[in-house]
Amino acid sequence: MNDITLFPADIAEMSVSQLAALPAAQKAEIDKNLDEAIAWLKKARTKFDAALDAAYGEQARTALRESGRDFGTTHIDDGALHIKFDLPKKVSWDQKKLSDIAAHIVAGGDKVEHFIDMKLAVSESRFTNWPPSLQQAFAAARTVESGKPSFTLSFNSEH
């Protein structure tokens, strides 16, 4: 990071309106410095998490297996340090195979929603390329909301 004129503590103490009133150069500086700090913190967090896994991961996984589980939460101690280890279960489903199973359920006369959570979606690029008559058929099922805005700052000479 370069020479910071507004430190994180200063920024945290400022109101939104005070930050909005800052000169453009200071806004650009804050934006750049925050992005650099976030990137640094993410790298540091990833490295430290890997170190914790190297130090305690096998012991914690063994404790889980000994309790008859492959996933979940266990607690271990390293002297005065108490470590809560959480290994979540991450499940993914093969969409093609689920679709085939759903077709068999329907063919058997059962309701698919009794067995499978279904979420239908239409990609926005597909929707916008449809003819107007098809868009109208789907319009009542479509809701458009704004997402979280993002801002990328640069000086005029940089683009």
Rank of each mutant, 00 (worst) to 15 (best):
P8Q: 07
A9Q: 07
D10C: 11
D10H: 13
I11S: 01
E13D: 14
E13H: 10
V16Y: 02
S17M: 11
S17Y: 02
Q18K: 09
L19W: 01
A20H: 03
A20M: 06
L22I: 04
L22K: 10
L22M: 08
P23L: 01
P23D: 12
A24V: 05
A24K: 12
A24W: 00
A24Q: 09
A25L: 14
Q26F: 04
A28N: 14
A28M: 13
E29W: 00
E29K: 05
E29T: 03
N33S: 09
L34Y: 00
E36A: 13
E36K: 12
E36T: 07
A37I: 08
A37T: 08
I38F: 00
A39E: 08
A39P: 11
A39G: 06
W40F: 05
K43W: 00
A44I: 00
R45F: 00
T46G: 10
T46C: 06
K47H: 07
F48C: 11
D49Q: 13
D49I: 02
A50E: 08
A50K: 14
L52K: 15
D53H: 09
A55L: 12
G57M: 12
E58F: 00
E58D: 14
R61M: 01
T62D: 12
A63P: 07
A63K: 11
A63V: 01
A63D: 03
E66M: 14
E66V: 09
G68N: 15
G68W: 05
R69Y: 00
D70L: 06
F71R: 02
G72T: 06
T73K: 15
T73A: 13
T73H: 11
T74F: 05
H75I: 07
H75L: 12
I76N: 14
I76A: 13
D77L: 06
D77C: 04
D77A: 05
D78A: 11
G79P: 08
H82R: 15
I83S: 14
I83Y: 12
K84W: 03
D86V: 10
D86A: 13
D86G: 09
D86L: 11
L87V: 05
L87W: 02
L87Y: 01
P88Q: 09
P88A: 05
V91G: 01
S92L: 06
W93A: 14
W93N: 15
D94W: 05
D94M: 09
K96G: 02
K97S: 04
L98N: 15
S99T: 05
D100I: 10
I101M: 11
A103Q: 12
A103N: 11
A107F: 03
G109K: 11
K111P: 09
V112Q: 12
E113A: 09
